[in-house]
Design a protein around this nucleic acid. Structure first.
Lengths: 338, 338
DNA sequence: AAACCTTGAAGAAGCGCTTCTGCATCGGAT
DNA sequence: ATCCGATGCAGAAGCGCTTCTTCAAGGTTT
């Protein structure tokens, strides 16, 4: 930088201002400095810049899961979409988005951050706690299950979405809708559970919930559904709180010789390619993860730059996507509803 | 840090030395400082540390491809394995391994690096050029096609491996072995091509090469093989320079009603899960990407730390893994060889 | 013509560390 | 008793930027 200053016949201050568009300099000076700078192939030191400015222009996107080992980030469409849109939005705002798993940070020296997005924080989330300790601005995608409105958040309207999905199932002829749920460690699962129970109370039916283990895989859904389907009072519809669980439910139905949707309706939370391509294709509550990612980054950028944040808790609408797995029944059981 | 120094009743120098295991300090002082430091929850600023030391402890792993858009990093077993082992080795040496695609760097401000591994550099690789310009130490996995021994490298013995594979095919009864090759922009492809041609000359047979386009997918292999198989003088064995190409060859054979291995032997460069699980399972030249990744990181670490590098050009052995797709023929054609 | 504002740019003080150098003190060796 | 090499630690100079402050020169206003 000093060399550029000398070559341009100005001070380092002027070089800095010219290159960063700050200060009160006429355009001619700026252009001159810029010309010299890239003639010399000057590359500013990001490290020095960060130290001096106190900003790193890095944001983290961390995914929290109760059980890290069994979790494959890329296996869930939701995260991939959220991540993609967040990365793009971050770039637009001049930030780099760094991916990390909440467990991964422990080993490596964490990169210096200006802010972080925590996706689906769990109860007593370690990453969340660490960010707060370091006073790093955080936006959560989904809410902190511990302290509802403690942090800025972007979330889906899971309660409303769940009810709409249950209504959809009922309309399709379901009379006993069971819930296959992950462990209630994420806010979205808590929301879904409560909405389900409230819905059941209002409809005056008994809720039936089967919990999958911490590994939210097809196998977990398969196991949870097998229990439900082989027991007494077999449900005629199952709503699963994750697409992969729903896929597992579908497999369980197949194993038990149940036809979908004729003997069992199946729907899942969160749309995914796998669900779309499954046979039968699965009805899903679409969450619009791209929108979540974008809004989270925008909010975080405002936070980091000390700009006012319009809405500390943004809600993104969900949408029921009806597919073959909940096609309206034409037989006797469907008619009995009316 | 100043606070820690005051709380411990020592100078900042001593704090720095104690925490980093440098200087001439008795263990008691070190322990004392450390105790105080984490009582105060002191976290050193990585940025300041980097600026002062001139080191970032970051290494990059960049994958070069001639055509970025059509390339899915995670779709190739080879890269995933290489990356995993490299990450672990890097961590052992106290470095973070940052993944990047050579094109991705252009937009974002690149993270400051101590060194970089360029996987399969292409001809006039932009990432390689940029690292050299910035005088960042580089180790290539595969060699720079432009200037053979310009940079430190870790590579497979592709020439020897290709010959062994061709021998294997010949022993299995092949008489006309064709090559399905990617574009010769990577050293490994150039190596394979040359070895193939040399082998043909020695065996006094005419070489037959079909080039796939820049997208090294199953579709590309399918197209390249379809040409070969529908033309005159149909080959009775095909060696493809990438597992995904080989999978495409297999599909092409199936389409044309050719049985593998009875009518056509198929082998591919680079072992992969997909090839193992294909039907028939594909014979492959295993490249041991884990070893490549490890050795590359070790070499790079030595380079970065100004330690002497024992071998500037490491070679990792390849191994023919015979599978169903090249099972020895028992019929007449196999016997004709002798 | 005096007082004031604007414009263009330089000076200098850090940001929070590392590291080189210096300087006591103390225990042996002579 | 003297000298010398360890040993234990502090001072201070940066690393390469940003940014706050200052300041001169020129242009306006009354």
């Amino acid at each position: 930088m000093k060399e550029v200053a000398e070559a341009a016949g100005v001070s380092v201050t002027t070089v800095s201002d010219a290159l960063n568009g700050k200060g009160r300099l006429p355009q001619t000076t700026r252009d001159h400095v810029r010309t010299i700078a890239n003639r010399l192939g000057y590359q500013p030191s990001i490290v020095a810049r960060s130290l001096a400015s106190g900003k790193t222009r890095n944001l983290a996107l961390t995914v929290s899961t109760a059980d890290a080992s069994t979790f494959a980030f890329g296996a869930v469409d939701y995260f991939v979409q959220l991540m993609s849109s967040a990365t793009i939005k971050a770039l637009e705002h001049g930030y780099s988005l760094i991916l990390s798993h909440s467990d991964a940070d422990r080993d490596a020296s964490p990169l210096p951050l200006d802010g972080a997005i925590v996706v689906d924080p769990v109860l007593d989330d370690p990453a969340l706690a660490e960010f707060r300790r370091q006073k790093i601005p955080v936006v959560t995608a989904g809410r902190d299950p511990a302290s509802e409105n403690a942090s800025f958040s972007v979330d889906n309207d899971h309660a409303a979405g769940t009810e709409r999905m249950l209504d959809h199932l009922a309309r399709a002829g379901a009379q006993r809708i069971a819930l296959v749920s992950g462990p209630p460690v994420h806010s979205y699962i808590v929301d879904a559970l409560q909405a389900y129970e409230g819905w059941c109370v209002r409809r005056k039916v008994a809720p039936t919930v089967s919990f999958a283990g911490y590994s939210l895989t097809e196998a977990a859904g398969y196991a949870a559904a097998s229990d439900l389907l082989s027991g007494p009072d077999r449900p005629d519809a199952i709503y699963a709180t994750l697409d992969r669980l729903a896929l597992g439910v579908s497999m369980a139905a197949k194993t038990q010789g149940l036809a979908v949707p004729d003997d069992l309706l199946i729907a899942g939370l969160s749309d995914s390619r796998a669900g779309r391509q499954a046979s039968p294709s699965l009805t899903a509550l679409a969450l619009d993860p791209s929108e979540i990612g974008k809004r989270a980054v925008e909010m975080l950028a405002a936070l980091v730059e000390n700009r006012p944040v319009a809405e500390p808790h943004v809600t993104v609408a969900t949408k029921v996507i009806p597919r073959a797995s909940t096609r309206r029944r034409l037989g006797s059981r469907g008619k009995r509803l009316h």
